[in-house]
Structures are given as C-alpha cells and as structure tokens.
Write a protein that binds this DNA or RNA. Structure first.
Length: 390
DNA sequence: AGGCGGAGAGTCCAGTTTAG
DNA sequence: CTAAACTGGACTCTCCGCCT
C-alpha cells in the first residue's frame, strides 16, 4: 500500500511539473514579444562572450571602473579626441568625451552599435567588476611574492594593519584611530622612503611590474625557478597587449594599496569599507598624473623598465631585479630627480597648463594628505575638484 | 602533466521588504 | 514595530576546456 501511495504521489507531482513547465514556456514566449527591446537584447546576447573579454581588458588596461551608464548614450563627436594627452583634463566635458573615446577605442568596430543600448551598460559594468574581482583574487594569492612578505599576511581576514612592515613601511600610516592613508604611500618610492619633493616617485617600479606581470602573464611569471610549462594563453597574449598603459599602471598601484589595506572587498563605488580609502579617486589621480607625464623622460625610463620586466624577461627575474649595475641605477635616480625638480620649482617652461596642473596635484598630494572619503558625494574626475578636495 | 582562465555554484553579508 | 524572509553584491571554490 505504501509503495502504491508513493507511486501515485510521484505521478501527481510529475503531472504538476509538466503543467508548470508548459505555463513557463508560454510565459517566456510571450515575454519575448512584449518588448521592442528584445531584438536588441538578443543582439547583445549574441556578442556577450566577446563583450566580456573586451570589458575585462578595459578594466585592466584603461579604466578600473565602468563608465557611467548615462555617458554611453551620448555619441562621440566626429573628430575623435586624442584621449591619451593632458588635453583631456581641460574641462569636465572633455574628460567625459575622453572616457567615451577610450571605450570605443577598446571595442572592435562591429560592437559599436551596442554601446548606446540599455542592456549594454549592465552587461559591460558587470563584466568589468567581475574581471577586476577575478584579477584581484588571483593577485591576493601572489601578494606575498610581490611584496616579499609572508603569504599568510594576505589571507582575506588577516589583520594586516597590525603588521608594521605593511602599515608603516609600505602604506605609511601609524595605525592611530581615524588616521588617513597618504595618497603617495612609501611603497611607491625606492627603499620605501617617501621623498617629500617627489624626486623618486615610482622609483619602486618593481612592485608595479610584478603586479602587472601576474595579471598579464599569469601567476607563475613571478617565480624565479619554474619556467612556464604550458597552459592557456595568459591575458597579455589573448588581448594582444605588448606594453603597459597609464590605466594599467594606475590599476596596479590601486590594486597594491587595496591588497595591503585591511579591506576585504573592492566595492563597485571604489570605497574601502574598513580603511575608508577612496580607491576610485586614487585611480583617477594616478591615471591623470601618468597620462600628463607619460612622455617625460623620467617616467618613460620607468615605464620602459616595467615593460621589459613584463614582456621581455625570459627567466630569473631576481637578477634583473636586484643586481642592476649601479650606473643604470644612478642614471635612473637622476632622471627621477629631474621629475621631482620640475615639481618643486616649476621651472620647465615647456610645460603646458595641464601639465602644470598635474604637478600641482602631485605637489599637494605629497603633503601626506589623504584622498579619503569625507562623507561627500563621489567627486568626478577633475583636477580642480581633486585639488580642492585635497 | 600541469598552468591558465572562465563558468557557475556556493558563501557571506548587508540592506530591504514583508508578515504578524 | 520587530523579526523573519528575501535580495543583491562581492568574493571563493571547484571543475572544465584549452593550451604548451
């Protein structure tokens, strides 16, 4: 009797399932015809995989944060603005256009028509965030190697802010309650020593190079001994990336700060929950600085070092890292010193207004003032607002 | 064989909605 | 009004296909 009852029950359930499935089919079929938008949605769906790859590349090489949805609706002015020069920071309008131009530059032409669609922003933003999260997750397992510290410090819930090497030597805070994080942490300077006149900013380029190498060439590119044994093509090969960009360098700096910070997650708005570091603003700050100074010889030298480290190194990075000949070192130091000198005296008459503006930002930031959230609305990417916040 | 990256399921947490 | 239920965002883990 028991078996019989169970069988009957089973049959009844199956019948019910069949009815529900049928109803579901009808509902989804109707849903398909209800909106005019659906052809559009299908179009985006068809290119979804390609779009996701582009979004991830965009998030690492161009902009750590997805562009605002409203911006995607606007059309690009016909003579496309050059977005990799200081000119983009002239006005708020030119900055927005540059963000859009950058996006279009990143996408293959056959995807252009998708950008203004409603669904695009949603799909693209999600992919940007997912890509960023997966890279940060990968980095977290290699952070010990990057900073030459015990890997256990970087377990997600480890109290990193209690370790003085991290808190004091790399991030530059004393650990007092309510203290803010400096915009230019010691880890950006050689020997982790902040130079008040910024003479050696980015001199500690190895950390940036290692971070980007891990993201672009895979985790094993960091280890000295084991050479790459095979595997799927790493991101750099997949994306055809041959050199780092200002966005990528800024990405690496922000990622390094995040990995050292006590924060456990990287929110979409770009603000650290525990540290209250405003990562979004820091990213904008460094990207602007890098774009404005990209062609300056001192920065060029550093970028060359980073590119060599990531793209030309075949094996044994420790040699390249630690035993560069002193003449090379000296030359680099001098070069950096010139960058700092320009910031101090502003005696370089060839500087454009925008370059001066970037130096202004830099000089103010050196005063150990943090780009920290002060319970205000997120500030847009502009030099003027940035300096006033500082 | 083993590294790489992606998909997707699962976890955790915080904010919001809903039932009582 | 409160507590339970739901929802959504971000991260984690595992598996799988691809590749050298």
């Amino acid at each position: 009797q028991g078996v019989k009852n169970a069988q009957l029950e089973n049959q009844a359930l199956k019948e019910r399932l069949r009815i529900v499935e049928e109803q579901n089919k009808i509902l989804s079929a109707n849903k398909g015809r209800r909106k005019k938008d659906d052809a559009v949605a299908e179009d985006i769906l068809a290119f979804e995989a390609e779009l996701k790859v582009c979004a991830k590349r965009y998030s690492l090489m161009v902009n750590m944060f997805p562009p605002p949805a409203a911006l995607l609706k606007t059309t690009l002015p016909d003579p496309a603005l050059s977005f990799n020069t200081a000119a983009r920071y002239a006005t708020t309008g030119s900055q927005e256009i540059a963000v859009l131009a950058e996006l279009y530059d990143m996408l293959p032409q056959h995807l252009y028509h998708l950008v203004p669609m409603n669904q695009f922003s949603n799909v693209f933003s999600k992919a940007v965030c997912a890509g960023r999260a997966s890279e940060l997750n990968k980095l977290r397992s290699a952070t010990g190697q990057i900073f030459e510290l015990p890997q256990c410090y970087f377990a997600i819930s480890y109290a990193r802010d209690t370790e003085t090497e991290i808190r004091h030597q790399l991030l530059g805070t004393t650990g007092k309650a309510g203290e803010s994080y400096p915009t230019l942490p010691p880890m950006l300077f050689p020997g982790n020593i902040v130079n008040c006149s910024c003479k050696t900013l980015f001199g500690n380029w190895q950390l940036i190079a290692k971070t980007l190498s891990c993201c672009l060439k895979g985790r094993t590119s960091l280890s000295n001994e084991s050479r790459r044994q095979g595997g799927a093509p790493p991101n750099a090969v997949k994306w055809g990336v041959m050199a780092v960009t200002p966005g990528a360098v800024a990405w690496a700096i922000v990622a390094n700060i995040f990995l050292l910070s006590p924060d456990q997650e990287f929110s979409q708005e770009g603000k650290g929950k525990t540290s209250r570091i405003n990562y979004g603003m820091i990213f904008m700050f460094f990207k602007e600085l890098l774009i404005c100074d990209w062609e300056k010889p001192c920065l060029k030298t550093i970028i060359k070092h980073i590119n060599t480290f990531i793209f030309e190194r075949t094996s044994c990075p420790s040699h390249d890292l630690n035993s560069r000949d002193s003449a090379d070192d000296l030359q680099e130091e001098m070069c950096l010193a010139r960058l700092g000198l320009a910031a101090d005296t502003e005696d370089d008459l060839s500087l454009s207004d925008n370059e001066n503006a970037s130096i202004d930002v830099l000089a103010k930031a050196t005063g150990n003032i943090a780009l920290r959230d002060s319970n205000e609305a997120p500030t847009p990417l502009s030099t003027t607002t940035m300096t006033s916040t500082l």
